[in-house]
């Protein structure tokens, strides 16, 4: 695994308490064939803050989050991380800079067990072999820290329920000291208690200074965890609101495009 470039010292010294964005997106364009998925999006992501990304289906929320995670390469635009321009050619490059993502499709390997999925792509090794004992112990610790309960960690992921699978995907992204944590619909398949657990988790990682980006359709979740909300419409960011200055009705109006048209 690649090591992340050393975090810029001057950044931390210059801005003692956040405010300065850790990740800045400017004029991001992405086109799939004839479909303009993103049409010049600007976005600031700040440490210790949860940014809600909302919008109708196909508004470009997932595409934008995948651009940040390195899954998609933008056609145009700049991304700077802590003041330095970065360019992710692969998700692993973003991951090396501690940008983690929970994908909507979870990106789990069904035929690999729970432990294996948690450590997918960064397996612990002892000599040439996998250190399964240590990975199992670490996995138990990781899941316990997030209050996620899975009965058997050596079970194949295909045997688990949708909620358990989602919990594993979240645990995988949240457990390796992320600086930016992107979550694409992390609560969509979850039951009530699990949603509570995820929201609690978001608040906890936020408190650790992690920048969280939450893509969601569940408006009620926004008011529980987010500090700011960005509204996407047809591949553009149409509005940005501090959560304290807005309400549910305004956000709904912004999403469906009332007032703007």
């Amino acid at each position: 695994m690649r090591t992340a470039p050393s975090a810029p010292e001057e950044e931390r010294g210059a801005s003692p308490l956040s405010a300065a964005p850790i990740l800045t997106l400017r004029n991001i364009h992405k086109t799939f064939g004839s479909h303009q998925a993103l049409r010049g999006v600007d976005l600031d992501i700040r440490p210790g803050e949860c940014l809600g990304l909302i919008g109708d289906n196909a508004a470009g929320k997932s595409t934008l989050s995948k651009v940040i995670s390195g899954t998609y390469i933008p056609d145009e635009g700049e991304i700077t991380m802590a003041g330095r321009p970065v360019r992710f050619a692969t998700p692993s490059e973003a991951r090396a800079l501690n940008i983690e993502m929970v994908y909507q499709d979870l990106a789990l390997c069904d035929h690999v067990d729970v432990v294996g999925n948690l450590f997918l792509g960064r397996e612990l090794k002892r000599g040439p072999f996998l250190d399964q004992k240590r990975m199992l112990a670490e996995a138990e610790r990781m899941l316990a820290a997030l209050e996620i309960r899975i009965p058997r960690l050596t079970a194949k992921v295909e045997k688990l329920s949708g909620g358990q699978r989602q919990a594993i995907a979240i645990a995988r992204a949240a457990s390796f000291e992320p600086k930016v944590l992107l979550m694409d619909e992390p609560t969509s398949a979850l039951a009530v208690a699990e949603v509570e657990a995820v929201l609690g988790l978001i608040n906890r990682v936020k408190a650790r200074g992690v920048a969280v980006v939450l893509v969601t359709h569940r408006m009620q979740d926004l008011f529980r965890v987010c500090d700011r909300v960005a509204v996407m419409y047809e591949g553009t960011k149409v509005a940005e609101r501090a959560i304290a200055d807005t309400n549910l009705q305004e956000l709904v109006d912004l999403i469906v495009g009332k007032g703007g048209h």
Binding site: T90, P91, C109, D110, H111, L120, Q132
Partner: peptide, 27 residues
């Protein structure tokens, strides 16, 4: 041994199970 106990074996299984997931986690 390679299949069950090494990182390479794990990568082979991951690629067969979900190639896109394997790519996204940096394999």
């Amino acid at each position: 041994v390679v299949m069950l106990r090494t990182q390479y074996g794990r990568q082979v299984i991951a690629v067969g199970s979900n190639m896109e997931a394997a790519r996204r986690v940096g394999m």
